[in-house]
Nucleic acid binder design. Sequence first.
DNA 1: CACTAAAAAGGACATTTGTCCGAACTGCTG
DNA 2: CAGCAGTTCGGACAAATGTCCTTTTTAGTG
Lengths: 198, 198
Amino acid sequence: MSELLKMIRVNQEFLNYIRVLKSSEKGGVIETIEARPTERIIGQRAPIFAVYIVQKGLGKCYLTEDSGKDFIQEFFSEGEIFGEIEMFNNDLSFCAVEALTDMVIFKIKKEHFYELLEQDKKFNRLVLKLLAAKVRYTALRHSFNQSYPIETKLVRLREQVPQLTSLISKTDLANYLGITERSLNRTFNNLRQRELKT
Amino acid sequence: MSELLKMIRVNQEFLNYIRVLKSSEKGGVIETIEARPTERIIGQRAPIFAVYIVQKGLGKCYLTEDSGKDFIQEFFSEGEIFGEIEMFNNDLSFCAVEALTDMVIFKIKKEHFYELLEQDKKFNRLVLKLLAAKVRYTALRHSFNQSYPIETKLVRLREQVPQLTSLISKTDLANYLGITERSLNRTFNNLRQRELKT
DNA sequence: CACTAAAAAGGACATTTGTCCGAACTGCTG
DNA sequence: CAGCAGTTCGGACAAATGTCCTTTTTAGTG
């Protein structure tokens, strides 16, 4: 469970297999692109023509509500895929994806993605698996987020990611937790105070 | 989007196809079971040996946090599948599923589910599609839930499900929204007050 | 129809979180 | 190093939500 709730998503197994494919005779369908920090790779409500798999670096997947608030769904890193959700129901993207560090990303065009799904059993199975993991992760996170006070959430994050605040800006952290920066700061202070006393 | 955020999940397309399968020569692998209100179909943290598809009735999928609070992930009705998430990663179930009304449910054992995935392209595609829809739904709901006050959430639900309170108990509603019953009542009262004034 | 036990609702107060804005800090530039 | 612009932080107050427990309602039962 703790593994599953990691805030920074990775999928080494999938990445490995993409690399295998890339160096096979069919590897031509797998392109490589790069992105610099703050660069937007896909936009919210945009039509999607390819899936993307993170090879290196860190990105965020977030959506902007009508109220103007941003909510971060996931931070993803090595092996995480995005754009695939939209492929299956021909939907517009519900998240924007933006680079936080320099990123290197595999890109597979829609038609080739479909081909792989149909013709490559292992690929198909890995995609099923990763979708299931995303459902599970998203559901558990939602439940956790609703059920505990901010302080508990922060403590958990820090346990997972010791370099938390150096990796991720406070604004992003607040948007990931669905709270304001003010509340985030306050909670950090409370924690610090309490830790000093012991 | 409004369609996607329906609180009571259905999947007519999938149900239709299961019915087709059921009356095909391979239909033997699809069993039918029934459940009465309050009956638990799968338990939290239990190993799962089959997937289930709702044919009729209403159920809830919820998980109990360490704190003792219940959080309802979904209400599902016709065509919704459950137990499939656990199949792919060999996990224990993260939700319990319980009947709210009389239910009729298709049941497909693990090994037959795998067979179908491998041998039936259409089935495979439908499962991919439905997993993607679940990710999308879960993600959008989480974001919405974090971003708006209780009142907004309640108003939306009532628009969707006019018979809201007769269909679903207040306790369940509160657990679906991740709030206490007290807050739910208060919000209902506020709404009522305001509506009387106009 | 009065009486009671159980369930649902609501009052009073505490706590948490958000909003608004001024104070403190940072990194430039002249 | 003074002065300034942009950014971050935190104080003061407001609003939302939770906790606890009493009151009210409901649905039986003799």
